[in-house]
């Protein structure tokens, strides 16, 4: 049983034909081919699948697609505007904030979310902002530095 479900993905209005219980993560990756959103754990622990729904960061592995009817979704593919990288993306490149890259889309979204809520975060606030995102490669220091750099650049 599938349903027709209107929503907005990266500023484009679309109508999905989906099973209501399908994970938003799978719909984004498999139907819309937005493979920037990654699956790490599939159980809300790692943040690799982070997306924005109506401006709030969520784990797309835990969202059944029925719950985004009429919602505005933004994925990592929608973060750069007009071929201009977001300051956070540029900072990750400049500071070596990515290695294998699986955690990176989620880390970037968590940092974008943090800076939108709090343009001048303290070190502790940066750590809290990234606390829901796991990285198995970098040891976190370069990610942390990337976020600090992004704050300075803005």
């Amino acid at each position: 049983m599938t349903i027709e479900l209107p929503c907005v993905v990266n500023r484009e209005s679309i109508v999905l034909n989906v099973h209501p219980m399908a994970r938003l993560l799978d719909v984004l990756r498999e139907q819309l081919h937005l493979t920037g959103t990654k699956e790490g754990c599939g159980e809300g622990e790692c943040g690799a699948c982070s997306v924005f729904i109506n401006g709030k960061i969520v784990n797309s592995c835990l969202v059944p697609v029925a719950q985004v009817e009429g919602a505005e979704i933004k994925t990592i593919e929608g973060i750069a505007t007009d071929n201009q990288l977001h300051a956070v993306q540029q900072a990750f490149i400049d500071c070596g904030g990515a290695q294998c890259g699986i955690c990176t889309p989620g880390m970037v979204l968590a940092a974008v979310d943090l800076l939108e809520r709090n343009p001048n975060p303290t070190d502790a606030e940066i750590r809290t902002g990234l606390a829901g995102n796991l990285c198995r490669c970098t040891g976190y220091i370069k990610i942390f530095e990337s976020v600090v750099r992004a704050c300075q650049e803005r």
């Binding site: 809300g44 943040g47 982070s50 709030k56 960061i57 969520v58 784990n59 835990l62 969202v63 968590a110 979310d113 809290t128 902002g129 606390a131 829901g132 995102n133």
Partner: peptide
Amino acid sequence: TGGLAIQNR
């Protein structure tokens, strides 16, 4: 409780 993404949901 959880991280921010969990707290939003």
